[in-house]
Design a binder for these strands. Structure first.
Lengths: 335, 335
DNA sequence: CCCGATGGTGTAATCGTTTACAATAATGAG
DNA sequence: CTCATTATTGTAAACGATTACACCATCGGG
């Protein structure tokens, strides 16, 4: 709790010199710098962050707003964000809004309040009005990652969800599947709609447009289980393959299948999305679409830094996904 | 980016009145309050957080320091923390130090820098010197949750790890198991040692002290897989049950068992720890020890608020665990 | 009619830094 | 030796809020 004044008097110089010794050491003589360093150690000084941000008009903090921190999909993205952020001297404030507009609002206020210099928005499930209002109250460097709003006018880092879905369906069709169902994320979610578009375009291209069943979950494992039961009954008219919009839901569907006495992939093929760590350790190991999560986080953070520093940036970045074939998919049994 | 001055002139009053209208509305007349409210909406004002914390000497922010944000075990604890924190008007800054002392140091500095009012430490895997140094530089309200340092002199919220381990072993012995192995977390981790003590005391009590194999992982699924292979080979002398210190490791062990041609629980029983969401959805569903995670978070945050406000608090809180029997455990086959 | 209490408001000091500007000393070129 | 330049330091004014203190009405009781 000691201040720069105490350091200054202990070092026998002015506060300006102490400040310079810390911020621009080369503008301070060798000898003074040493005295200041000793004084700092002596009195146990840490610069007051509030005073510093007030004066500098920056906080060197960015907010990353998530829909749900318990979704393992986000943790590696966070790692990517933090890597780049820390390297650049920024702190990351992780906000979990739990789909609660009030909580989200509190995080949006951080920017006009000068408590944060920018925001990484990892969800579109936030009242647009809240965001627009905050943006009207001042400078608001903002990057969306993974998700996006329909109008796509904001800087965004995503994967090519359309193509990923096409790839998944092409793969299943090549295996011989004809009845392919989809378990999407929340109905109003733009990335899910992109994927659905990919699915239906691809199915149509293969002449399989009719009767493709689609249900919606919430990305969580429980909804996968519940909707999995719904998709797989009655057994006689069940799909032979299910494309799930998240690995967690795929794991839920596998449990549903098992409970109905179906074996994966013999009786039904399951394909997930995200390639979460556990997808390799469930039974059977999950065929899934891998998103380059660390890279998404890194790219988004770099983009945000560019915006914060008013540098020219590439406002729309699309990264590649990769289909990872494991054991939850196979040829359908001839019926 | 407008300031209180602009609001004041728009409302035709002084900055003091604007400030009071926000902080202590009942000290301001009805009419003025309305004018201020209108002026705020008009100019789009958000109080500058840095100026506010500088003056108030508090940030209404607390840091929660985690060893690893990707561990799903922590997400529900965070939820508990945030519930209580937000209710009390505090923000939560989640810090992921990834076992990197430098990163951890940056978070410790937040308190002497007046950027945070308190810290929730969810890992003991942090250089003690770093912590002690930060605590010497000023007031440092700190609560440990889940983990703790050996000396236990800090306020702590934990579960009774010793008793939980005893319960697990008692249960396995009651099923008929005689060769019970343990897969612990990191070797130097105090909670793991507590659990090991519980294991060895209980085994001794049952006259099974000798030959109980113990290996260490890192709580992650991959280490469970690797150490699971080690514990289960050679097959002829393998344990009939394995007590794992985390569900993730248990899932890894199950994969190892499957790969070795063993069926769970027929050929080997597996018991986990934590009751993460996915433990109910893997195959077989995991027998595990449930920690009241939301409550841990809530209790820790409440304790921290007490410390911040210099209220009398109960410095050591121990919550109960619960053994949840599912399908990964059963009687050993007679050999 | 006077006095004290009360309610509402304004003035100005304060929180701890940073930094523009000024001042001084030291250096070197001419 | 002089003058311009550079290196080093200090002085003091911000940054934007909060709040102690003072001030002025207004009101009611005596």
């Amino acid at each position: 709790m000691s201040t720069i004044k105490e350091v200054a008097s202990a070092a026998g110089c002015s506060t300006a010199t102490v400040s310079r010794a810390l911020a621009t050491p080369d503008k301070v003589s060798e000898a003074t710098r040493a005295r200041v360093a000793r004084a700092i150690a002596e009195v146990g000084y840490t610069p007051n962050g509030a005073a510093r941000s007030l004066r500098r008009r920056e906080s060197r903090t960015i907010v990353a707003l998530l829909p749900d921190i318990s979704n393992p999909f986000f943790s590696e993205i966070i790692n990517g964000i933090e890597d780049v952020a820390h390297q650049a001297g920024y702190r990351v404030l992780i906000g979990d809004c739990e789909r609660d507009p009030q909580r989200a609002g509190a995080y949006f206020d951080l920017l006009p309040a000068n408590q944060a210099d920018g925001m990484l928005l990892l969800t579109a499930d936030v009242p647009r009005a809240l965001l627009d209002d905050a943006r009207r109250r001042g400078r608001f460097p903002l990057v969306m990652a993974c998700e996006f709003f329909d109008d796509r006018d904001l800087p965004t880092v995503t994967v090519d969800n359309y193509r990923a879905a096409c790839q998944a369906i092409d793969y299943l069709v090549a295996l011989g599947h004809r009845r392919i169902a989809t378990l999407t994320g929340p109905v109003h979610n733009p990335i899910c709609r992109e994927r659905e578009r990919g699915v239906s375009d691809t199915l149509t291209a293969h002449g399989l447009a009719g009767g493709a069943q689609t249900l919606a979950g919430d990305f969580g494992v429980h909804s996968g289980y519940v909707q999995g039961l719904a998709l797989l009954t009655p057994l006689h008219s069940r799909p032979t393959a299910i494309f799930c919009h998240s690995d967690e839901m795929a794991i839920g569907v596998i449990k549903a299948a098992r409970q109905l006495g179906l074996e994966v992939p013999r009786d039904v093929s399951i394909i997930g999305f995200d390639n979460i760590r556990l997808s390799e350790y469930c039974d059977p190991e999950l065929t899934t679409i891998s998103q380059p999560r660390a890279q998404i986080g890194q790219a988004a953070m770099r983009l945000l830094l560019g915006l914060i520093h008013d540098e020219p940036v590439e406002r729309q970045q699309v990264l590649e996904t990769r289909l990872i074939v494991r054991q939850s998919t196979g040829q359908p049994e001839p019926r």
